[in-house]
Amino acid sequence: MRAPADGTVSGDDAGAVKSPGALYFIGRWIVAPIAKLVYRPRVIGRKNVPEHGKVILASNHLSFIDSVLIPMTSPRRVQFLAKSTYFEGRGLKGRVSRAFFTAIGAVGVKRGAGQAAQEALEQSRRIIDSGAAFALYPEGTRSLDGRLYKGRTGIGWLALTTGAVVVPVGLIGTDEMQPVGVSFPRVRRVTVAFGEPIDVSHYGSAESGRARRLATDEIMAAIHALTGQELAGVYNESPPANTVERVRRALRPERL
C-alpha cells in the first residue's frame, strides 16, 4: 500500500536501510556518557521501551537538542530522519556536520511535499522494518510557543502499516536548554519521559483515514499526559508567505 501524503521530508535512497556505522557507536558509547555527566538529564520510564521488536518513539518537539537527547537516553539504538543538507556540506564544516548527524543516528532525507512526503514515510517504514527503534515528531516541526500541536497522521500510518508499538516520549525543558538561535546547549536540567507502549492495531487498517486519525490522536494524548503542555488544537505550520498561499490553505480540506 502506498503511504498517504502526510509528511515533510523525502528519502534520498529507495534502497535498503544502511547501518549507522562506527560513528554512531562512538557517539553512543563514548560521547553520550560524557554528555550525561555534564547535563544530567532526568530520565523516566526507560523500561517502557521494548528491548526487541518494532518500536516507534513519538515525541513532542521543542528544540534542536531533542534529536540528541532521545538517542542519548533511549535504551535502544535509535534512528530518525534529518534534512539531507546536514550531510551534503563541503569542507571541514560539512565533514563535521556529516559526522555529528551520523553519530546520533540520523538518516538524510530531502524536504518536500506530495510525492516527496510519501517517499519519506516509505523510508521511515524501511527503518522500522530493519529492527531499529525509529524516532519522530508527530507535530512535524518544533513548537516555538511551547504548545503541543495536532499530530500529523503519518505516525498513525507507520504504526498501523508496520505493526510497531508506539512509545510516547515527553520532553520537558529542552526549549530552555537550547532555545531557537542558540548554537550550543546551556547547562539546564531537562526531563525525558518514556511512556507506556501503545498498540494501535485495534483501530483497523492503515488504508482507513479514520483509523490513522484515531491512532494519531491517542498517541498525541499520551504525549500530552507526559508533558502537560497547553494544547494548540491546530497543526503547526509556518504563516503563509503570500496571498495565494493563504487562499490555498483556506480552501484545502483538513488532512487526515
Score class of each variant (00 low, 15 high):
P50N: 04
P50I: 00
E51H: 01
H52F: 03
K54R: 14
K54S: 05
V55I: 11
V55W: 00
S59W: 01
N60L: 02
H61S: 05
L62A: 08
F64Q: 13
I65P: 00
I65T: 08
I65W: 03
D66T: 00
D66M: 09
D66C: 11
D66R: 03
S67I: 02
S67F: 13
V68P: 11
L69P: 01
I70W: 04
I70Y: 05
M72L: 15
T73D: 10
T73K: 07
T73N: 10
S74A: 14
S74I: 13
S74D: 06
P75I: 04
R76W: 00
R77A: 12
R77G: 12
R77P: 09
Q79F: 04
Q79L: 14
Q79M: 15
F80E: 07
F80G: 03
F80C: 06
F80S: 06
L81N: 03
A82M: 10
K83S: 11
K83V: 00
K83R: 15
S84M: 13
S84T: 00
T85Q: 01
T85A: 03
Y86P: 01
Y86V: 12
Y86S: 04
F87P: 11
F87K: 02
F87I: 09
E88W: 00
G89W: 02
R90M: 05
R90S: 15
G91Q: 08
G91D: 10
G91S: 12
L92M: 08
K93R: 10
G94M: 12
G94C: 11
G94H: 11
R95E: 13
F100K: 02
F100T: 09
F100D: 10
F101E: 15
F101W: 15
F101P: 14
T102I: 06
T102Y: 00
T102L: 05
A103E: 09
I104Y: 11
G105S: 07
A106V: 07
A106R: 00
V107Q: 15
V107D: 14
V107M: 12
V109K: 10
K110V: 15
R111C: 15
G112Q: 06
G114L: 02
G114H: 02
Q115A: 14
Q115H: 04
A116T: 00
A116L: 06
Q118P: 05
Q118T: 14
E119Y: 02
L121P: 12
L121W: 04
L121S: 06
E122P: 06
E122Y: 10
R125S: 13
R126M: 06
I127P: 00
